[in-house]
């Protein structure tokens, strides 16, 4: 009976997965089409992929996407680590307020955020009025909840206060102990949240379009341009973006399962 129920569940799941994969499969097949003859394509080709991987604009978009992902992530991680260290060690009562502040970006739409930033800083004479700075700032805000959660969960899992106390009793300063003992132990959480942030920023079109379309050309903008040129090329670009995002997600899941295995091993399970 149980076996039959399992088979039924597997059949239902397979149908759902197939259903969800249809657009993806169609895009993949479509990206391989050579040319339309009316109802069917003339043939299959990898020319679209060859075109985009030899296009300097694509490589530039890829490079710029990585750059505008990595810098805000590094800034946010550094700020969050120091902020969480200070709050946890010196002002634990402020932690709930910090959590509240860090969760606010979840509720802000990209359009609202980018327009608000423009209104606030566009006419400013300081460095904050530069479009790249605005973009980086906006990205720091967008990924804040993800980075916060990743680091905070990592800290909760290791009893940070006690490890800091132990290091301090051995002659270490609190700040050094934090970076030598705590950070290595929450590295999995930091990497996972960073990869999630990369996946999030990788798909951004709205914020970059509003804030810095003249300065930066990211993957989503390249996709938009490709759609104007050729639909099959646009499908190839979409497939590349999907595969990169899939690879990042797979890496996140692998790291998370490794973290869970380590936790289970620590608990003697």
């Amino acid at each position: 009976m149980q076996k039959r129920a399992r088979i039924n569940a597997a059949i239902v799941m397979s149908i759902i997965i197939l259903w969800l994969m249809i657009p993806l499969g169609a895009t993949a097949v479509y990206s391989l089409f050579e040319d339309w003859t009316g109802i069917v394509p003339r043939g299959f080709t990898l020319a679209n992929y060859k075109t985009i991987f030899t296009d300097t604009a694509f490589l530039s978009a890829m490079y710029q996407t990585v750059l505008i992902c990595v810098i805000p992530i590094l800034i946010t991680i550094a700020v969050m680590l120091l902020a969480l260290f200070t709050v946890t060690v010196y002002f634990p009562k402020l932690e709930k307020y910090m959590q509240l502040l860090c969760m606010i970006p979840y509720t802000i739409q990209g359009v609202i955020l980018s327009v608000s930033i423009l209104i606030l800083y566009a006419r400013n004479d300081s460095v904050l009025s530069q479009r790249m700075v605005m973009l980086m700032g906006a990205y720091c805000i967008i990924i804040l909840p993800h980075i916060y959660n990743g680091i905070r969960n990592g800290m909760r899992a290791i009893n940070m206060k006690m490890l800091l106390d132990a290091a301090e009793m051995l002659g270490e300063s609190k700040l050094k102990a934090f970076f030598k003992v705590i950070v290595p132990n929450i590295m999995t959480g930091i990497i996972v949240s960073s990869l999630l942030a990369v996946a999030l920023l990788f798909g951004d079109y709205v914020i970059i379009r509003n804030l810095s379309s003249a300065n930066v050309n990211n993957m989503q903008q390249f996709l938009y341009q490709a759609m104007k040129r050729s639909s099959t090329e646009a499908s190839a670009v979409s497939m590349v973006i999907i595969l990169i995002t899939f690879a990042i997600t797979a890496l996140v899941l692998a790291l998370q399962s490794r973290g869970m295995l380590e936790k289970m091993r620590n608990e003697g399970k």
């Binding site: 132990a166 290091a167 301090e168 051995l170 002659g171 300063s173």
Partner: peptide, 28 residues
């Protein structure tokens, strides 16, 4: 605390999880 020259063992296991036994003991 770090200048008092006092050693302490805590209620919960306070070893640094990322360091081996050798490196834990050698830390101080």
């Amino acid at each position: 605390p770090r200048h008092r020259g006092i050693g302490m063992v805590f209620q919960q296991y306070s070893l640094f999880p990322n360091l081996s036994v050798r490196r834990n003991v050698a830390y101080g």
